[in-house]
Nucleic acid binder design. Structure first.
Lengths: 358, 358
DNA sequence: ATGAAAGCGCTAACAG
DNA sequence: CTGTTAGCGCTTTCAT
């Protein structure tokens, strides 16, 4: 007997037991065919009825739906998906290029993810989350897009994978990326104008009296690089110095690094631009511990405007990214791409939120 | 012509175009059958070769794998899943019973989610995230478990769905829940001993000199209720009062509510037990704004030990939950349940982290 | 070591 | 309005 053992035994490889056809008689209703038998109609009709197709007689339809409900019947999505060639699932990939532990726990990414979950749910899509370590798996992107498990892809952060994303975008339409926009790039990106954000931050610091700036953050990822570049633009124009102080995003090393920078460049700066609010909060604490007044001795500006930003004291002056709007845009654009459209990127303006630290 | 249009046009309902069989000749290699034709073997052999089955000749195997690689061939997971009756996907459900916006952006849940993603990835599982609004969808649990899209389920937080989860657990083995443990419950839960945590918090507050306690938080969800109960245990024994100050977890109302409680109970308490660190941080800020010294006038203890807890000033005294260990346990137990085992719940001990606020 | 064939559970075109 | 039928793309007997 080739093929698969029939009848409600979940798992095709289990061999037949020799019992006869009565097995499923009292068994639960697992397949549309079971239901069809119970209702005395064909599987096709059940399928249509459950889909609410008005072709099928209203009374029959209602009866079948009732039957389904009362037996706790669940359509097998996998089979349905296979047949319809769509999954109702959007993949969300988080590439962890540099800083392995960082991103997923970083306030910003998490908040974005939360909003994405909202937006997608609202449109009837499920969300499949995948963290990827690009150096362990070169092919992460095409594996995900080509898996047949997702209808489209949202990539959170370009990390150091800009080129790979570019390459994928050439062949795979339904993908939208959160990140930085680069002149002439091919993939559809949603993000904040980081360079402008950097400029706003530096301008604010200087307006608040800073004369020697420092940038705390990792300038490798392009989003951060752009923020740094923006700050440099302004610093250059204003004739003030700007010092790069490499700082990772994981809490543990971050604290250490900040303490180090503060110590070894004690007099080197009087204005700090932190690449993220997470870093800014850590700076604030370190400065206080070191007995340096904020904003008296040192001015401080963060980036993101996370919820904590308003909870520190003094509350953090920062550059706001509108995360909810970003999530909405990512999903909007993806939906349009799922519809075959080739959408443009969206660069959103950052906004200075002036609070107490600069 | 009934059934489905053949040959690489993704989407069965599109009608034939009249072109003849040459269509796929230069087309990309999409199915195992395409690959089989190229390799001059049968689909079965390709399937075996790609699975690394040693039954197939080593040379043929290598050749086929090479061919697959060079053509960027991706196995269709959906089809594979359907046939094998397993998905390699674990569902993660976040029921949002009371406080809609709350949980997903709450630091604790996000951190837990991050760790879960890590653990699951490591074991070769994908993670399907679903936020559910129980009042909009009574059947959320069985829909998810019965969808055929996941092999098992992790539920983050019981919210107000304890009974529904209990019911589901009776019929669905591969499910593990993060939350509070109730004597004699049926579903497998992983969580902290919240009541003990509440006791530790209250003890600390009293030891630090508090004589009238307040609990800030929503005592509805059972995890929080247990924390509150623990604090009450201690308060009663010590003969000090404890005031419940309902506080939601969403940032916006939270701030308002805290301000209100502080104002209207100005002299009513000198020790605050906050149900989460997020609330504690907001309290800290509100107290400072109100000119009340911490821990001088008011002592404060949080819960969770999120990264921010160490970043406030003074740094937060709090009750630590070991989130990473929790995630590991959730996944471990789920894996064992996927293997058919009926695992016990795990209640982890909380730990007081004494810092500056009490 | 390989091929042929029988489905996993569902959907939709076709034909009444 | 409903039944029949041909698959979606893959895996796994069974039979060589």
């Amino acid at each position: 007997m080739p093929g698969i053992v029939p009848r409600g035994r979940r798992g095709p490889e289990v061999a037949g037991t020799g019992e006869d056809d009565s097995v499923w008689a009292e068994g639960q209703v697992r397949t549309i065919t079971d239901l069809a038998r119970l209702a005395g109609v064909s599987a096709g009709t059940v399928s249509r009825a459950l889909a609410g197709n008005t072709l099928v007689n209203a009374r029959t339809r209602e009866r079948i739906q009732q039957l389904a409900r009362s037996h706790g019947f669940q359509l097998n999505q996998m089979a349905s998906n296979l047949r319809r060639q769509k999954t109702g699932v959007v993949g969300v990939a988080i590439p962890l290029g540099h800083d392995r532990r960082q991103q997923i726990s970083d306030g910003f990414f998490m908040t974005l993810l939360g909003h994405l979950a909202d937006e997608l749910t609202q449109r009837g899509y499920d969300l499949m989350l995948r963290r990827v370590l690009p150096e362990r798996d070169e092919d992460w992107l095409s594996r995900f897009s080509g898996s047949g498990m997702v209808d489209g892809l949202i990539v959170i952060g370009q990390s150091d994978q800009f080129e790979r994303i570019e390459a994928a975008a050439a062949e795979y339409l339904p993908m939208v990326v959160w990140g930085n926009h680069q002149e002439g790039q091919r993939h559809c990106v949603v993000g904040t104008d980081n360079r402008l954000g950097g400029r706003l931050a530096a301008e604010r610091l200087i307006a608040a009296g800073a004369t020697r700036l420092a940038f705390f953050g990792d300038a490798e990822p392009m989003e951060f690089a752009a923020r740094f570049a923006g700050a440099c633009d302004v610093a250059a124009r204003a004739g003030v110095s700007i010092l790069a102080c490499p700082t990772s995003l994981s809490v543990e090393p971050m604290t250490r690094e900040i303490a180090h920078h503060l110590h070894s460049n004690a007099g080197g700066f009087d204005g700090i631009f932190a690449a993220t609010d997470t870093i800014a909060v850590a700076c604030l604490k370190a400065l206080r511990d070191a007995g340096r007044a904020v904003p008296g001795h040192v001015r401080l500006v963060g980036f993101d405007d996370l919820p904590i930003a308003s909870q520190t004291s003094p509350p953090l002056t920062t550059i706001r990214q509108d995360i909810a709007a970003g999530a909405r845009a990512l999903v909007d654009l993806l939906m349009r791409r799922l519809g075959g459209e080739n959408t443009e990127s969206l660069v959103m303006p950052p906004r200075l939120i002036a609070r107490g630290t600069a």
